[in-house]
C-alpha cells in the first residue's frame, strides 16, 4: 500500500491538471508555450528559474494559461470573435490609414457595426491607436444632414461609403485637412473588420 502511494506521489508531478477540467473550462483558457527561461522571467515565484538546465544546455518548456474575463457564450459569437482580435485588427487598419494622409491631418473615426456598444469599442480602439502613432485625433464624429442620410440608406453598400465621403467634403462636414477612418463589417457572417479612409472627398478601402 505504501509503495502504491509512493508511486502515485511520484507520478503526480507529471499528471496534467487540465485533464480534470471540463471541456468548457478548457476552452475558456488562453494558453501559450514558453521556454522555461522566459516563463521564469514572466511568472517569477510561480515558475522556478532553471539554472541547472540552462548550464547543461537543456531547453525546457512551460505551458502558460490564463482564464478569460468573459466566458465563451457570454457574448454573441461575432462580437466575441471581433473583440478578441480587436487590437490586432484595429492596429493593422489604423497603421494603413495613417500612411495615406499627411501627419498634420486631423483624424475622425467612426465604426459601423450592428451592436452600438461594440461599435463604440472599435472606434475608441482606433482613436487610441492613431493617437499613439502621433496623429491628431478628434472625438467628433462627422455627421451628414438628415436628408443626406435618408438618401444614403437607400444605396447599395458598394456606393454608400463613396457617396457619403464625397458629400461630406462638398458640404464641408470634413475639411481638406481632415480625414475619416471608417471601420465596419460588410457581411453579417464575417468576423473581420474592414477599413476605409475618406480624404478630400475620395473614399479608399484599406488593404
Amino acid at each position: 500500500m505504501n509503495r502504491a502511494l509512493l508511486l502515485c506521489a511520484l507520478s503526480s508531478c507529471a499528471i496534467d491538471t487540465l485533464a480534470f477540467k471540463t471541456k468548457a473550462e478548457r476552452r475558456n483558457l488562453d494558453c501559450q508555450r514558453l521556454s522555461d527561461v522566459e516563463a521564469a522571467a514572466r511568472y517569477p515565484g510561480q515558475v522556478p528559474p532553471p539554472p541547472a538546465k540552462e548550464l547543461a544546455g537543456g531547453v525546457g518548456d512551460v505551458l502558460a494559461c490564463s482564464t478569460r474575463y468573459l466566458e465563451t457564450g457570454e457574448r454573441p459569437n461575432r462580437d466575441e470573435a471581433i473583440l478578441s482580435s480587436l487590437s490586432t485588427q484595429v492596429t493593422e487598419l489604423a497603421d494603413s490609414a495613417g500612411a495615406m494622409a499627411p501627419q498634420t491631418t486631423r483624424w475622425h473615426v467612426d465604426a459601423f457595426y450592428p451592436s452600438l456598444p461594440v461599435a463604440q469599442k472599435i472606434a475608441v480602439a482606433a482613436r487610441t491607436t492613431l493617437a499613439q502613432r502621433g496623429f491628431i485625433v478628434s472625438d467628433r464624429v462627422p455627421t451628414l444632414a438628415a436628408g443626406d442620410v435618408a438618401f444614403l440608406v437607400t444605396l447599395p453598400q458598394s456606393e454608400v461609403y463613396r457617396i457619403a465621403c464625397a458629400r461630406s467634403f462638398v458640404t464641408e462636414v470634413l475639411g481638406p485637412d481632415e480625414a475619416l477612418l471608417g471601420l465596419m463589417i460588410v457581411d453579417p457572417k464575417e468576423t473581420q473588420l474592414h477599413g476605409g479612409v475618406c480624404l478630400r472627398g475620395e473614399w479608399r478601402w484599406l488593404p
Binding site: 496534467d16 487540465l18 478548457r26 476552452r27 494558453c31 459569437n77 470573435a81 457572417k189
Partner: peptide, 17 residues
C-alpha cells in the same frame, strides 16, 4: 487510452458562420 483535446491558440474562438 483517454485523450484530452485542448485548443490553445485561435481554435477556442467562436465563429459566426
Amino acid at each position: 487510452c483517454v485523450t484530452v483535446y485542448q485548443p490553445l491558440v485561435g481554435l477556442q474562438r467562436p465563429i459566426a458562420l
